[in-house]
Computed example of a mutant assay.
Amino acid sequence: MTKLKLKRGSPREEFPSLDGNYTYMAQVLDLHMYTRQFNRATDSGVIFDDIIRPGLEDPGTRTGPKTVGCLAGDAQSYILFCDFFDRIIEAYHSYKVVSDITQVSDFNYDNLKGGDDFDRAYAVSCEVSVTRCVEDYCFPTHCSRGERRQLLMLAKKVLDQLGEEFPGRFYSIDDLNQEMKDQEIIMDAPPASLIKIGVGRDWPDARALWVSEDGTLAVWVNMEDHLRLVSSRNDGNIQEAFAIICNGLLKIEALYKKLRHPFIWKPHLGWVVSSPAEVGTGLKASVTVKLVHLVTHKRLDDILDRLRLRMEINHLSGMHKISNQQTIGLTEVELTQLVVDGVKLLIRIEKRLENNGGIDDLVPAQK
């Protein structure tokens, strides 16, 4: 463990004000924990104040979705500051981190049941994404310009080698803006909150997007994490989107390993990325569903909690995104299955409400 001697006061003098802070960081952090972490630093120089800065810059609101309010600066952060991160993971995912329980992955998309048969009058689009970080490099909040540029060159080398199954094109952000200029679509600089915490530094230097020729797979490089793979569709066929992610990810992972730059994996945490909200699998599966009656029902929050899902409500459009909250403790297939089964049930409930029927018999048991 490395110790830094910065010109700071005592932990009590430096303890941040958490009044009006609605993040999980503020829920977990107290002076005792802050004091224990205060003089610690990872080998690359990440200190605890770096970890909690996202939640101080963006404290959230009482009624808004509750965020974790923290980001790791490197993989060692999860080990050195494990007292803090383990509690964050437990609070956010309702999953207790235990050193002798290993996170298991399952990329066999044939194990997913359903997801290609949603009622199209309700399920209008879907997306599956997965994040990964590369061994021996700091995460975006803390990496140097040189590291970011090395990660870009590595990603370009890998994505150029994807082969016949996934031919595609690699764009820098400047290239992308130039190409889409005629369509009056420009990628804006990241919000001030990401610049303040370091994720958006030097924008758009060494940021890029790779897109497959058929448009079914996109890979973002050096955004909130080293890599984010995304497969999105203008229908609800999440089974197909999941299959594309699994195929693409396994091929990309093999190429990174071949270049001796594997993705970061810890047995008790699974795939390690910058946000504790995405450790384990790094997977987010979502279906956008047209719901009118259910979103105003008094039991909505209870139903979502029982299904272990979250919903981003858009009253203006009537289209609401349903996704998994948890990313650890279950496999990729199991997490996607939660979304598939949950969306099917929510559509059934919506149909019942349309006919002024009761829904008590459809409310699920806690998963």
Rank of each mutant, 00 (worst) to 15 (best):
P59L: 04
L56I: 15
N39T: 10
H93R: 06
G55Q: 08
D119E: 12
D30L: 12
S105I: 02
T42N: 10
S44H: 12
L80I: 15
Y109A: 13
S99G: 04
D116G: 14
R87N: 14
L56P: 06
L112D: 02
I88L: 10
A72V: 09
A72R: 02
E90L: 13
S99L: 13
T102I: 11
T67L: 13
D30N: 15
R62N: 10
D119P: 00
F107Q: 01
F118D: 01
C82Q: 14
T63K: 13
L80A: 06
V46N: 03
S99M: 11
N108R: 12
V46E: 03
D110G: 00
Y92K: 10
G73A: 05
L112Q: 02
N108L: 03
Q103M: 11
G60E: 08
F38A: 07
T63W: 12
T61N: 05
G115R: 04
G73I: 04
T42I: 11
L112S: 01
I79N: 06
T61G: 11
F48C: 10
Y34L: 07
S44A: 10
I79W: 00
S99Y: 11
K113I: 15
N39D: 14
P54L: 02
D43H: 13
F48G: 09
I101R: 14
Y92F: 15
Q27S: 14
M33Q: 13
V98T: 13
P54Q: 04
L29G: 10
Y78A: 05
Y109L: 00
Y78L: 07
I89A: 03
S77V: 08
C70I: 03
G115F: 07
L112N: 01
Q27D: 15
K66G: 05
V98P: 00
T67Q: 13
D119V: 01
D117Y: 01
C70D: 03
G115E: 01
Q37G: 11
S105E: 08
C70V: 09
I79L: 13
I51T: 11
T67S: 14
G55E: 07
L80N: 05
S99K: 14
G64S: 15
R87T: 11
G45Q: 08
V98L: 12
V97G: 04
G69P: 12
D58C: 08
D116C: 09
C70A: 15
R53N: 14
R53E: 14
R53W: 01
D106I: 02
G60N: 06
T61W: 00
K66S: 09
P59D: 02
A41G: 07
G115L: 06
L29S: 09
G114Q: 06
D83A: 07
F85R: 00
T42W: 10
R36C: 05
E90K: 14
D110M: 09
G64A: 15
L56T: 09
T63N: 13
S99E: 13
I47Y: 00
